[in-house]
């Protein structure tokens, strides 16, 4: 480590943290890699695609909100199992999850993404972007698919993906943190553990640089999601109020 800001950590500590984060990721990843890989051949048939496309816009929005919420519940469990997270004050736990849980869902999307067919696992089968047409947010969908594709091109191992997810979740520059320096130390340790793991796996330095570049892409994706939701809510306030999952509303409400 270098500079006053970097925490002093031993290799043992980094190894221990990496193990803890990998284990937490594997316990909460929602779908096992083998399950996902085995079902890549199961893509939606044309009539099934048309069935999604002919659903009323608000019904498809509700379905997607439910799926996102399910994925987020696993991310909350992931966060809870990361060493040090539950030692943060409750305000900061909430701040980090509010800002970062969807970002981790987008990162995890690459595990369920098939680059060959440009499809993602959704509602039991692999779906192309056309499945989501009725939502009326093609830009957001295309960006999410592009992000998953670019994450896949990095060929990260599950361990590396776990550490990158934790690094994103522990972002110390989120607004409204009360114990910013405590979060900063945790994030720095996670970054060191990620760096250590990349070196151990003999990945080049440029992988870390590429991953750091993803930070702003992820933030862009999430703000686009918020904007799209606001536009939807403006037209269908009662649908959101009465039919969207309470956790989704808590996270993205305002």
């Amino acid at each position: 480590s270098s500079g006053d800001m970097s925490p002093t950590v031993s290799m043992d500590e980094l190894e221990h943290l990496a193990q803890n984060i990998s284990k937490s990721h594997m316990e909460t990843c929602q779908y096992l890699q083998e399950e996902l890989q085995q079902s890549t051949w199961q893509t939606f048939l044309q009539d099934e695609v048309e069935c999604y496309q002919s659903k009323p816009k608000e019904v498809m929005w509700q379905l997607c909100a439910v799926k996102i919420t399910e994925a987020i519940q696993y991310v909350v469990e992931f966060a809870k199992r990361i060493d040090g997270f539950m030692e943060l004050c409750q305000n900061d736990q909430i701040v980090l999850l509010k800002a970062g849980s969807l970002e981790v869902v987008f990162i995890r999307m690459c595990r369920a993404f098939d680059t060959q067919n440009n499809t993602v696992y959704f509602d039991g089968k692999y779906a192309g972007p056309e499945v989501f047409k009725v939502l009326g947010c093609d830009d957001l969908i295309t960006s999410a698919y592009d992000f998953a594709k670019s994450m896949c091109s990095l060929h990260l191992s599950e361990d590396e993906l776990a550490l990158f997810s934790a690094f994103i979740l522990l972002s110390s520059d989120r607004s409204w943190l009360q114990e910013k320096s405590k979060v900063e130390k945790l994030q720095q340790k996670t970054q060191l553990a990620l760096q250590h793991m990349l070196q151990k796996h003999q990945r080049g330095e440029e992988i870390l640089t590429k991953l750091i570049c993803k930070v702003s892409t992820l933030r862009g994706l999430c703000s686009r999601h918020t904007e799209t939701l606001s536009a939807f809510r403006a037209v269908y306030p009662d649908i959101v109020r009465a039919h969207f999952p309470p956790l989704y509303k808590e996270l993205f409400g305002s």
């Binding site: 316990e27 909460t28 929602q30 399910e70 519940q73 696993y74 909350v76 469990e77 809870k80 539950m86 409750q90 736990q93 909430i94 999850l97 509010k98 309470p246 956790l247 808590e250 996270l251």
Partner: peptide, 20 residues
């Protein structure tokens, strides 16, 4: 706290993914 009732609950519960 009221504003983030469910998040608070999830953070306090000793849930596991199987329970979700």
């Amino acid at each position: 706290k009221e504003k983030h009732k469910i998040l608070h609950q999830l953070l306090q519960n000793s849930t596991s993914p199987v329970d979700l």
